[in-house]
Design a protein around this nucleic acid. Structure first.
Length: 380
DNA sequence: AAATCTCTCAACCGCCGCTGT
DNA sequence: GACAGCGGCGGTTGAGAGATT
């Protein structure tokens, strides 16, 4: 990880040596930090003040926590990010022992990818447009007598000819969205409070990871948020209910007042209308109606066909073109797409998972399993 | 075993806001 | 009010490690 050292204006750049580290530590232990401009000279370091400050803040500080991010930390980062955006230092302030740089790196290398895989835009924390567009396709396809597949903007998908891997992933995302969005408890709460934020959605989603099977049984009653919730202290943002945390952050973190208020006006808040459908987010209107597709037998048929086709792809190690029309015209299957998924995904997860592959989100667990399989065959 | 590719993360850079003069 | 100095922040880079071919 070491960069080649360079020297400019008598100032050293690049990786720090153990000797330099020791000098910096010794000096700060004796004199404390601050006055970064003069510190290197006084400490006998050929470094600029910025470099010293960064080295101390990101690496040498004694209270830095090393090692992997825990579930709770990861969850907190996502929730904080949904409220704060790329305010890494503010996020870091709420995660004891973690630096802004570390969190920023972790976000860019891990969390961002996970969210994308879940079909969530990591910037807005809302469903990705292509997922919503797929919902539109389904909606149109299932409820119109003459299906139309002219959605050229659907990312990565050609006109009328659909990559089954892509579609399967998106369908799975939609399924998991459906599970979250139609939890009666959440709807009740939202109606009482007049709206629900994405934060709550995410929170519920992360709570549901406690029971991944439950998360994928949309036709069965969900365990209520309250029942599922493990009582935790409100003193730590990691343990707060999202709404509480959001309020607390609004009250506590004054420096972010401006960006936060701006963000509040952005469409990264999901609201439910009186019918329990997500609304407000412009494209969600399409999505909410598409959600109704899932109760359709035809949807089951499509889903099963996708899975079968997927197996075919895996076996043949090929990438056949995939025509949605043929799926839509196929005979509805009696088996539920959910049960099919459960049986296949659990095996993959148990066998394939590693510490690194753990997925924080129940919904994405399925996505991940499928993706793994697809990755193996080079389809994704 | 070697070459190539991908991922990670420490460190750098440039900008911005605050403070003092 | 204008300017300079400084600290802090977020985006980006690139070396090295690990994975894959």
């Amino acid at each position: 990880m070491a960069k080649s050292s360079t020297e400019k204006n008598g100032l050293k750049k690049g990786p720090w040596t153990p000797e330099e580290d020791q000098k910096l530590i010794d000096y700060i232990q004796k004199h404390g930090h601050g006055k970064w401009r003069t510190l290197p000279k006084n400490a006998g370091l050929k470094r600029c003040g910025k470099s010293c400050r960064l080295r101390w803040a990101n690496y040498l500080r004694p209270d830095i926590k090393r090692g992997r991010f825990s579930f709770e930390e990861e969850e907190a980062i996502i929730q904080l990010h949904s409220v704060l955006g790329n305010k890494w230092s503010t996020i870091a302030a709420n995660l004891p022992g973690r630096t802004d740089n570390e969190i920023k790196n972790y976000w860019n290398t891990h969390i961002k990818k996970k969210l994308l895989k879940m079909g969530i835009d990591p910037v807005t924390h809302t469903p990705r447009l292509d997922v919503i567009q797929l919902a539109s396709i389904l909606n149109t396809s299932l409820y119109n007598s003459a299906p139309q597949f002219n959605y050229p903007s659907l990312s990565g998908i050609g006109r009328s000819v659909i990559n089954p891997s892509h579609m399967l992933g998106l369908l799975t995302t939609l399924l998991s969205c459906q599970n979250r969005n139609y939890n009666p408890d959440v709807l009740n709460n939202n109606q009482l409070s007049g709206g629900s934020t994405l934060l709550q959605n995410q929170h519920q989603c992360s709570r549901m990871q406690l029971d991944s099977t439950q998360a994928f049984q949309p036709n069965q009653p969900q365990v209520s948020l309250q029942e599922n919730h493990i009582a935790k202290s409100n003193s730590n943002p990691l343990n707060m209910e999202p709404q509480v945390m959001k309020t607390t952050l609004e009250n506590q973190i004054t420096p972010i007042a401006t960006p936060f208020s701006q963000q509040n006006t952005l469409p990264n808040l999901w609201h439910y209308n009186t019918e329990g459908h997500i609304s407000d987010l412009p494209t969600m209107a399409q999505s909410s109606s598409a959600m109704q597709c899932f109760s359709s037998p035809k949807f089951n048929s499509i889903y099963n066909n996708l899975l079968e086709n997927q197996n075919l792809c895996n076996n043949n190690e090929g990438m056949p073109n995939f025509n949605l029309s043929s799926l839509l015209s196929s005979t509805p299957s009696s088996s539920s797409p959910i049960s099919t998924l459960n049986s296949s995904s659990s095996t993959t997860f148990v066998n394939g998972t590693t510490e690194d592959e753990r997925d924080t989100y129940g919904s994405s667990m399925l996505m991940y399993n499928i993706s793994n399989g697809l990755n193996d065959s080079g389809l994704l």
